[in-house]
């Protein structure tokens, strides 16, 4: 069976105004809207399109986290994933641990493609994809904006600082998604009902034989320093005058 593995991270919704909690141990999450990490949604959409083109048979979504991450996995199933795996962890795992979890799942599921988001919008680490590719000893194609699959290779266009770069990788491989890869579909109500019947299995880190690492301790969270609000100028001439006075033009 040609299988694609997709990572789904539960994160604070991108539209929520983030506030650091008073004791500096993290950000406020009580009553805050949670969502699938937007890059993971793009990853899932791409996997679904590949399956719909007949180039894959099954799309399996994976999340690592608390029991509530089932909500995001159900949404992923409603989008069209075939089944879901939740690897339970009550504390946030570091990227290297997440990569080790995926490596174990790869051994079980034998996917020909793993698609992950290029970064999660909470910790902004941008690490798991390349870490997984390294541990798996397979190619990585990060920041993908276009994926062309052939029988045993993928041609991937990557959004790099200099423009667009195209590389060819042998399969299996890890691909991480950038914004322009696709526009994820909306979930329809009947699909939400159907998703309730799709398989969602729960595993533990111990069952997978992964010992979570804690190499980077998060000591203290602080709100960023705020810029001072400046002044309004009335027209272009006043603006140019002000900028010249400041010596920036």
């Amino acid at each position: 069976m040609k299988r694609i593995l997709v990572g789904i991270k539960r994160v604070v919704d991108a539209n929520v105004r983030i506030r650091v909690n008073p004791d500096g141990t993290g950000v406020m999450t009580d009553g805050v809207k949670m969502a699938i990490n937007p890059f993971d949604e793009i990853a899932l959409e791409e996997a679904l399109r590949i399956k719909e083109r007949g180039a894959a048979d099954e799309v399996v979504v994976v999340s690592i986290g608390i029991a509530d991450a089932q909500q995001q996995l159900r949404t992923a199933l409603a989008m069209g994933a075939d089944r879901a795996l939740l690897v339970r962890s009550d504390t946030a795992v570091e990227p290297l641990t997440a990569a080790q979890v995926f490596l174990k799942l790869i051994a079980r599921e034998e996917p020909f493609l793993v698609i992950l988001g290029k970064q999660a919008i909470d910790d902004d680490n941008s690490q798991t994809g390349p870490m997984l590719a390294a541990l798996w000893n397979r190619p990585q194609a990060t920041f993908a904006s276009k994926i062309e699959l052939a029988a045993s290779t993928a041609k991937v266009t990557r959004e790099v600082d200099a423009g667009l770069e195209t590389i060819e990788v042998d399969l299996p491989a890890v691909i991480t998604t950038d914004l322009r890869l696709n526009e994820p579909r909306y979930v329809k109500l009947p699909d939400i009902m159907k998703a309730k019947k799709k398989p969602l299995d729960t595993l533990t880190l111990a069952e997978l034989g992964v010992e979570p690492r804690a190499q980077v301790k998060l000591v203290r969270f602080e709100a960023p320093s705020q810029r001072q609000k400046g002044v309004l100028v009335k027209d272009a001439a006043e603006l140019v005058g002000a900028l010249r006075k400041r010596g920036v033009i």
């Binding site: 290297l96 690490q127 994809g129 390349p130 590719a133 541990l135 990060t142 920041f143 959004e159």
Partner: peptide, 20 residues
């Protein structure tokens, strides 16, 4: 994009953490 692509691959091969 150069460093974000390369450094985590190095970190994983060294079995060490990355601070991004």
């Amino acid at each position: 994009t150069f460093g974000k692509d390369l450094m985590p691959r190095i970190a994983a091969l060294l079995d060490c953490a990355q601070v991004s």
